[in-house]
Design a protein around this nucleic acid. Structure first.
Length: 233
DNA sequence: GTTGAGCGTT
């Protein structure tokens, strides 16, 4: 998603990525490009956004062609007030593929765990990050968890299919129809073609002469009834 | 309409 007509990440082999933090959620790549382009040749400006809401996450990545320019931009733009907020410009430490980056440049060398004589750990604070992440999850991660639950519930429905008549009407969307039709058709096909999914055998075995709902209701009614009877003198 | 430490993609 760049304004260079190229899709996806360009050639980051000879580029130096800068991480821009503390930017406003309204700041876009177009707003950062001219600012960073004044201090050097900017190859690409990318701002990670939320795939669900499409909202910016509050940080951006600026790729420079040369390291000196990137360094200069870091020194000049670090602490610059952009859109009423002080941004923080620094070299990216990690690449898109979780690759290690040194001075903004990707380091292909894999550090040997045994050969590393450094006893100091570069990440002494894990709880802080996790805590912060949790705190942040309340605002943005909430949707992800919800989606996960939805997926789990969906999978559960697909797996159990205890109630074939029950349809996820609550998921009705403005653009639904073909998907739902296909899913319903497939589900129906499974229901009639592949009874293994519904597994009526154990169901019948479980309740040979009584419906589970009725039994559950009976139990529910039985409990208070028993209690009531017990309470009543 | 909100939020505020961090590390990335049609």
């Amino acid at each position: 998603m760049s304004h260079f007509g190229r899709s996806g990440p360009p050639d980051i082999r000879d580029t130096y990525s800068l991480l821009v933090l503390n930017i406003t959620f309204r700041t876009m790549a177009d707003d950062l490009f001219p600012l960073f382009d004044k201090y050097g040749e900017v190859v690409d400006v990318f701002i990670p956004r939320d795939r669900r809401t499409g909202d910016s996450r509050g940080f951006a990545f600026v790729r420079y062609k040369y390291a000196d320019e990137a360094q200069k931009a870091v020194e000049k733009l670090d602490g610059r007030n952009v859109d009423g907020r002080e941004i923080r410009v620094q070299f990216a430490k990690y690449g898109p593929n979780a690759e290690r980056i040194h001075k903004g440049r990707i380091v292909e060398e894999v550090p040997r765990t045994r050969g590393r004589s450094r006893s100091r750990s570069p990440r002494p604070r894990y709880r802080d990050r996790e805590y912060k992440r949790q705190s942040r999850s309340r605002s943005r991660g909430r949707h992800e968890r919800d989606r996960c639950h939805d997926r789990e519930r969906e999978r559960d429905y697909c797996r159990s299919s205890r109630s074939p008549s029950v349809s996820p009407d609550y998921r009705r969307h403005s653009g639904r129809g073909k998907y739902d039709d296909e899913r319903r058709s497939r589900s129906r096909s499974y229901s009639s073609g592949s009874p293994a999914c519904c597994s009526p055998s154990p169901k019948r075995s479980s309740s040979p002469h009584s419906t589970p709902r009725k039994g559950s209701a009976d139990e529910k009614n039985h409990e208070p009834s028993s209690r009531s009877r017990s309470v009543s003198p």
